[in-house]
Amino acid sequence: MSTAFGHLRYGTSGWQRIDLYGPAEPEDGDAPVAEIPQAAPVVLVHGGFWRHDRTAQDLEPLAFALAELGHRVAVLEYRPSWDGGAWPGAAEDCRAALHLLGQKDGTWDGAVLVGHSAGAHLLLAALQGQARGARVVLLAPVTDLAEAARLGVGEGAVDVFLAAHLATGGTHREATPVLAPADAASVTVVSALEDQAVPAELTRHQLDHWPQDGPRLTTVSVPGARHMHLVNPQRPACRTVLKLIGGGAATAGKEDR
């Protein structure tokens, strides 16, 4: 199956764009439309510690893999800390991008929303208070900014991201999103057990402090996986992620909470 491409823009900055991937319409001789799997659309938010150590482009292999499985895929790009994305800029970008997708004739209704690393923080911040009720998958997430800052995650990236907010009396806690049950139908947190970018201590802390009255939480841990393995289809760990996004059961370390 071939893959189609497209872009949407949701703002004037070059960063404020959505990269689109999807199964191409069949040409003569290809399988008829009815045989193309009807999979849920997927929205991906990349990480990179809010400063774009990684960009949307880095999720292109995952987007291709999902498109090959019949998913339409939207990869959100957003402004980095150093180019207008300091808190709350990047979170507002993600919210605006989700809003734009929501206006597209139902194409993106029922989308599975996936955030990787700091992208998980932005995804949750964009969803907070929106009552979208979507299925959410967080990969090696950094969501508790107070703890992430305390642990020095991303070589001080949290305090750079929050610098203006903190300088005006804001707190890390205010920038740490908390979902209400209506904001997400379910949340699945996938941890890479050999993650070199997100320490296990942060992952444990975030799960231990997950709001009891929040959306239903499922945790999955993937042995042998490093931080980027979860989004790299060439790595075995990504098979677990593809199954989870597709709605299948995880093969490793699943726990409902």
């Binding site: 070059g14 960063w15 990179g48 510690f49 400063r51 774009h52 150590d53 960009t55 482009q57 880095d58 980095p80 800390s81 150093w82 180019d83 750079v160 610098a163």
Partner: peptide
Amino acid sequence: EALMASLPKVRWDDLEAAAEITEAIARR
């Protein structure tokens, strides 16, 4: 200096990725 310290590490071994991020930095 704070802005410069907030810039990402450039992955020059991936020229496509480096091109994207360095163009953005250069324009910024």
